[in-house]
Structures are given as C-alpha cells and as structure tokens.
C-alpha cells in the first residue's frame, strides 16, 4: 500500500509518496483557495510521477492548514509530529528541527525515534517567517540569491527588531533613507540576525541545543542559514529536500498507520 503525506501550507502544498518506507515521489504545488482541492491536485501530480504498476491502494495522512477537512484523508496529524518523523527519516542523526515556513516558524525537539519531545512555535507575527523575508527582498528589490551574496560582505548587521514585522519594515526603510544610508549588506545581515535571534530563543526555550536540522523553503536561503548557524553556534543539517520534510513525515506516519492496521 502506498503511504501518502500531504502538507498544506499557506503558499504551497507538498506531497510525498512512499511505499513500504521506500521513497517514490515528491511534488510541491501551489495552495489553492480550498484545502481539499489543493490536496487533491498535489496528490494527483505526485501519483503521476510514480510507476503505473505500484500498488493502487493508499493511506493518506494530511497536515497543515485545513488538513482535517480533506475528505480523502485517512488521518490528519499535527505539523510538529510530521516534522519530527520527516526529519528522522531524512536526517536520522538530527535531534531537533527548525522549520521556517511562509507564515510561521517552529522548532521541534525530537528523539532518535522521530518522536516529539517538545516544541515552540511562533505564529502571531510575520517576523521570523518566509513571508517576512520575501517582503524584505521586495522592499530592497533583490532576489534571495542576491541577498545571500550581499550578506556575505557585511562586517556587521544593522539593528533591526526581531519581534514585529511592521516595525522591522519601517526600520529597514529608515536605514535605506538615512544620510548616509546604511550599506545594503549590513541591512540584509541585520534582517537575517533578527530572524536568527528569534529562532535561537525558541531553540533555547525547548532545550534544542544540538544536532539541529533545518526545514522549510527558507532553508534554501543560504545567507540566512549561515547567519543562523553562527547565531546558534553550530552547523545545521539541511536535508536535500527541506521543503517537503513535513509531507515526508506525514507519509512516514501513513506507513505506521498501515502497519498498525495490518497488525490488527
């Protein structure tokens, strides 16, 4: 039986298909107005990628916004559980995962079996999330790659608050319009530092002190990863496909459910 995990995010929906723990496919598609349709489209696309002779039976686990309302979902699971299982699958040595999604950031502390020991999340403000970084890139008319490269040349970061995205934005504007303006690399590093310090606090809060992995689209933001590593004081594990970690975990959980049902 195929185990399918679907993670419905605010911007993208991720799907992973496994068969008996064996990876078959993953797909990232746009999140549409309704969770049901987003999940359906994403799953169809993922199934198109696998061989026609794979088992037609499937067990679907959904997670993320509106996951419970998906009619063809066999189970819905918390994003924290999915992140823990997903990271244990792709980075077995990790004991914590930092997930920076579009609209929220979460740190999950895990054990060697991919079980959640504790978590901290922040979803009250865009500060420290992917959307915030996107806004900043737009404001400075730079791509993520350009931001990353420029941050490398900064000797220090500008002061930018990590607690409120709106204040942070006006601080960036005032740095740009200052006479003389704060150099762009310093502003970018300041932005990265503001995100990193927020994440570091969450790690400290739950005692996620070592073997930390990174997931979510922001893990592809190399400049931020480097800053975060410096802030946390250790290298971070970045899986090959950081975007699909929660969907992968959902697929792993689907596999566990299949096993439970078979055992009964």
């Amino acid at each position: 039986m195929l185990s399918i995990g679907i993670d419905i995010g605010s911007l993208t929906t991720k799907t992973v298909v496994l068969n008996n723990g064996r990876f078959l496919a993953s797909v990232v598609s746009e999140t549409l107005d309704e969770a049901e349709i987003s999940a359906q489209v994403a799953m169809t696309k993922a199934l198109e990628r696998i061989d026609a002779d794979e088992d037609p039976l499937r067990f679907v686990v959904t997670t993320g916004a509106g996951a419970k309302g998906v009619s063809f979902s066999d189970r819905s699971k918390a994003i924290t559980t999915c992140l823990a299982r997903g990271i244990a699958y792709c980075v077995p040595e990790a004991r914590a995962v930092i997930d920076i999604g579009a609209e929220s950031s979460t740190v999950v502390k895990t054990n060697e079996r991919g079980k959640v020991l504790d978590w901290a999340n922040h979803d009250k403000c865009a500060a420290g999330t992917g959307i915030f970084l996107q806004q900043m890139a737009k404001l400075m008319k730079l791509s993520f790659e350009e931001m990353s490269e420029l941050s490398e040349t900064a000797s220090k970061g500008a002061d930018i608050t990590g607690t409120c995205a709106v204040f942070a934005e006006s601080e960036v504007i005032s740095h740009v319009h200052r006479v003389p303006p704060t150099p762009m690399p310093e502003i970018i590093l300041g932005i990265y530092l503001s995100v990193s310090s927020r994440i570091k606090t969450m790690c400290k809060r739950i005692g996620a002190n070592e073997k930390i992995a990174l997931s979510g689209g922001v893990a592809l933001h190399k400049g931020l990863v480097r800053t975060l590593e410096k802030e946390i004081g250790q290298p971070l594990f970045v899986p090959d496909d950081p975007v699909c970690v929660a969907a992968l975990g959902a697929a792993v959980l689907a596999g566990e459910e299949i096993q439970k049902e078979t055992a009964q």
């Binding site: 699971k77 918390a78 559980t81 079980k115 959640v116 504790d118 978590w119």
Partner: peptide, 11 residues
C-alpha cells in the same frame, strides 16, 4: 492542545 495530545500519545 491537539498537538500536545499527539505528543503525549506518541511517547
């Protein structure tokens, strides 16, 4: 709460 209950159940 649901996340937490899942954590407790999964221990």
């Amino acid at each position: 709460m649901e996340r937490f209950f899942e954590l407790l159940e999964d221990r």
